[in-house]
Nucleic acid binder design. Structure first.
Lengths: 341, 341
DNA sequence: CTGTTAGCGCATTCAC
DNA sequence: GTGAATGCGCTAACAG
């Protein structure tokens, strides 16, 4: 069927071991034989069988990537970073889209274990690390991205969400905003919880008293951002001057709602988001947001994972990356009292 | 190290073959032994080694997915469809992001061959199928999506781009538009070429004479859509009433440009795109576009591929899927003459 | 129905 | 430096 080391060996008049040594540079080989081997490889069109090699070496040079939804721009960016870093380090990447379903996630992890991936880069769907138990129990390396989850002992790469959110609140307060609505993410998702807490802290740092009625929850979708606006607006009784969303996608939804009812951003209401997805800078007005270092998240995650796979490192690391505030046109000075919805 | 069939066999007091037969249902086994095997599997926490199985069976149950850019919403949608279908059919998916670079693409194909993937789902970066030569030459199954490429003999799943574009032109002509600018995609990319031709045909079908100065090329990015507008506008000498872009992302750029100079969509200029990415329905005004059946593209591609992998089918198929026109708010009646930019 | 044997393709001992 | 032998974990072929 396909060409094997043995075929190459015969063609070059050497043993299979020698071919292997030439191909992997694993031991010195006489220049002449070396050349003969290389020639034979080319002439026969030999291509090493990675499966056989993996079986023998007990490592697959493959990583698993599990994300809730690859069509979510934020995860797509993450995936790109992970993919680039993996291939750069010589690892292939098996893509798994959990669809935010814990059960699918569980099945994927099973498949990945059967495939003997060397490690896992993971954005968990659920709140708890259930699906990961069978994983870490077997001593398989995992690195969590974006969110942490209970009872997981692996490495973690996250953004400093609270810090980022505080930056954003401070920006708005400086612009004169006092009645700021907040659209949070799902309770129990650590990144969402941190942004929620950061919003509260930011307000308190500015000497303002948070109003629970001005804080609602969405699920990171456009629709929930859209629907939050009338709720916040009603709760604020005509004093709402700004809306902060826990993700850009929800912020886009909120902006849409504001526009739809005929108000202007930022003249009537300022709107801000979190993530800095590509669309944020493309909408009208361009969205003020907190930029996550997505590429770096993916790269650091893979580097940590590979470090652990190759045994260079054993203690779990917790990496918290700094986001940065990106001020665009969707936030502006708070309008004079009386002119607000 | 890890638990093998032999361990299970010993624990259950049977032979390794029997274990294998139980696990794969490949031959009838006595109920008692069967139960004992299953028990041992669970007790020992046995998990089959997919690498060994693949090596033995000469099939990896793995497919390769190569796309130009996973962060492009259109390709992300495609990837999701491909991923879902693959896993449903029992195949894992190795993700490769070519970054539109032919050289990277070539290296990826090499890696995928070493990994012995059973087939390849591919959106080629270049115009020519260079990178694929070494692939099809080895008789490996490929299915091309979105675009075709010279000298490739595999299966193809594409959208009927010309048809879709004609639908769009007809819609605009019916609204009274006569001077329509066109922002095409890169020359040589088959889907872009077809949309270009479809635009011309659509105009001629309506009895209009295409004006070459009103047709420019972009590269499917927001920026090129943005920059095309002043060019088209100048060429039209104040008669431009509509702009059609060859992708939604470029249409979004065009809409942005129109807004930036203070004109309104669709009152002053109508704008339309192609693809129907998620953002199309979310921007203001929502974008009129030609919806590609993305999910179906991915699913059909995988089904074709798996059909070929399993040898059920040998003749290459060419699947052309029908897109549909989605009329939203970015297109409207042509303004009266004299009121246009 | 079931066990024994053999081999997928490779890298790694171990001798020389 | 080099070749022969061994086994990674599994399933298929062959006897029984």
């Amino acid at each position: 069927m396909s060409v094997t080391v043995l075929d190459v060996a015969r063609a070059a008049g050497v043993s299979a071991s020698t071919v292997s040594r030439v191909l992997n540079g694993t031991a010195p080989v006489h220049p002449t034989k070396r050349r003969r081997v290389l020639q034979a490889v080319r002439r026969l069109g030999y291509e090493p069988n990675g499966l056989a090699r993996s079986l023998k070496q007990r490592k697959s040079l493959t990583l698993g990537l599990v994300v809730p939804d690859i069509t979510n721009p934020f995860f797509a960016e993450i995936a790109k970073g992970v993919e680039t870093a993996s291939h750069r380090l010589g690892y292939s990447l098996i893509l798994c889209n959990s669809g935010n379903a814990v059960e699918r996630e569980r099945r994927y992890l099973e498949v990945l274990r059967e495939r003997r991936v060397d490690g896992l880069v993971f954005v968990p769907a659920g709140r708890r690390g259930d699906a990961l138990r069978g994983w870490t129990a077997r001593g398989l390396p995992v690195v969590l991205m974006d969110r942490v989850v209970d009872g997981v002992t692996g490495d973690v790469v996250v953004t400093d969400n609270a810090f980022g959110m505080k930056l954003l609140v401070r920006h708005l307060v400086r612009l004169g905003h006092r009645t700021i609505g907040f659209i949070g993410g799902p309770r129990g998702v650590s990144s969402a919880d941190e942004r929620w807490a950061g919003f509260l802290d930011g307000l308190r740092d500015a000497g303002l008293t948070p109003d629970p009625r001005l804080m609602v929850r969405g699920d990171f979708t456009f629709e929930t951002g859209l629907r939050a606006v009338p709720v916040l607006s009603a709760a604020a009784r005509g004093r709402l001057s700004a809306v902060v969303a826990s993700s850009d996608v929800m912020a886009l939804g909120a902006m849409h709602a504001v526009h739809q009812r005929g108000d202007r951003v930022p003249d009537t209401v300022s709107v801000a988001g979190f993530d800095d997805i590509a669309a944020a800078s493309l909408v009208q007005p361009p969205l003020t947001t907190v930029a996550q270092p997505v590429r770096e998240i993916g790269e650091r995650a893979v580097e940590l994972l590979v470090g652990r796979v190759t045994g260079e490192r054993t203690r779990p690391s917790f990496v918290r990356l700094r986001p940065r505030l990106v001020v665009r046109k969707s936030t502006g000075p708070a309008p004079a009292a009386g002119a607000r919805p």
